[in-house]
Nucleic acid binder design. Structure first.
Length: 347
DNA sequence: AAACGACCCAACCGCGGAGAA
DNA sequence: TTTCTCCGCGGTTGGGTCGTT
């Protein structure tokens, strides 16, 4: 009983569609900040932390919705060997991937490696779903190329080159394919033809739109992706590069000019009066219920991202009708809120 | 068909850093 | 300078799904 009461105060556990909807609404109003405030005014019985996490790891429009690709895998391996468990830092190098995602991937990856090592890695090269990179990694162990310890240790200069060298089979074994980094980038670019970010931008498009991007130019133009009306709406960049290092979400591009100051750290320094702005927004809404927000958005601006998101969410059939989506979310607990929508017929 | 283990992913927790008061 | 608040990060856990036996 007491637990039930507490449950009503701050909900925990899996998010419902309704909660997702509310959160998206309020993040679109107030930006990606002041999570406690958003948690309060949205009427979600969640704490700010939980809201932020849900947004960052699941609802953020820039997230990729597919499995880690081989080039990404290699990049993760490389960056992890450099930086250790600095997941957020590594994630910044992989647009559309979250630190949580990479962390989870790495966990699985290392567990696999440990198991293969146990079994005697000689027969293990085909066991990885992505093959080459895992081969390279397990191969490095076979050949005694030791991966540098994770935490805080600088990358051993010889590690990666040893790995590269290990790629050329000598003893009759099949040659191990190891990717040089520029090839990795190219493959990431190419693989994005099949794996776009949820904003419908391919890596190539992304790079084309972002001159500051440090990636090499794409080798070719893929056919245009089927874009979602949701993300067409916010076709401008969601991420920007700063000092050639970090990717940053650019809220102004997404939400339009407003009170949102893009800041990777999430902290707002130059906002003249965020609280009064928020208060105004809330009072403008008249009420803070998600229903009110929903009807306001859908009716006032049917083409808005949120209206489209709502339409997508309302159409439950979409989820089951999209095998790619289901593949991406094997094992997921809740139904995904934003689908890589099929092309919308003009009529 | 059922049981089991492996895999995958969402979400929670605790801690620490940064800025505001 | 100290305290408080907010936020981000890394570690960990719980549970759903899938493949195998």
């Amino acid at each position: 009983m007491e637990a039930v009461i507490r449950e009503e105060r701050t909900r925990k556990g899996p998010w419902t569609e309704q909660e997702d909807l509310q959160l998206v609404c309020y993040v679109s109003l107030f930006g990606e900040r002041r999570w406690d405030f958003i948690a309060k005014v949205s009427g979600l019985n969640r704490n700010g932390k939980s809201c932020r996490l849900r947004w960052v790891n699941y609802l953020h429009p820039g997230l990729k919705r597919c499995r880690i690709t081989p080039p990404e895998e290699l990049l993760i391996l490389d960056l992890h060997s450099k930086w250790g468990n600095r997941w957020s830092r590594i994630a910044r190098r992989l647009p559309g991937r979250t630190d949580n995602e990479i962390k989870n991937y790495w966990r699985t990856h290392t567990r696999k490696m440990a198991q293969e090592r146990k079994r005697g890695a000689s027969r293990s090269s085909s066991s990885s779903s992505w093959g080459s990179s895992c081969v390279a990694s397990s191969r490095s162990k076979q050949l005694g190329v030791e991966e540098p310890a994770a935490a805080g240790k600088e990358k051993d200069e010889g590690y990666w080159s040893s790995l590269m060298a290990a790629g050329t089979g000598e003893d009759g074994e099949e040659a191990i394919k190891v990717f040089p980094m520029d090839q990795i980038w190219n493959e990431m670019v190419t693989s994005d033809s099949n794996c776009s970010t949820t904003d419908g931008l391919s890596f190539q498009q992304y790079c084309r739109d972002h001159e500051a991007c440090s990636m090499p130019p794409p080798p070719c133009d893929p056919p245009p992706l089927a874009s979602s009306p949701l993300w067409d709406y916010c076709a401008e960049s969601l991420w920007k590069m700063e000092e050639g290092d970090d990717y940053e979400f650019n809220p102004e591009s997404f939400y339009g000019a407003g009170p949102v100051n893009g800041s990777d750290s999430g902290r707002v320094d130059s906002d003249p009066d965020p609280n009064s702005y928020m208060s105004d927004q809330v009072s403008n809404l008249g009420q803070t219920s998600a229903t009110r927000v929903r009807s306001t958005i859908v009716h006032d601006d049917p083409g808005s991202p949120l209206a489209t998101l709502m339409q997508i969410k309302d159409s439950r059939a979409l989820a089951s009708a999209n095998p790619q989506w289901n593949r991406c979310y094997q094992g997921g607990k809740s139904s995904p809120p934003v689908l890589p929508a099929p092309p919308v017929a003009d009529s």
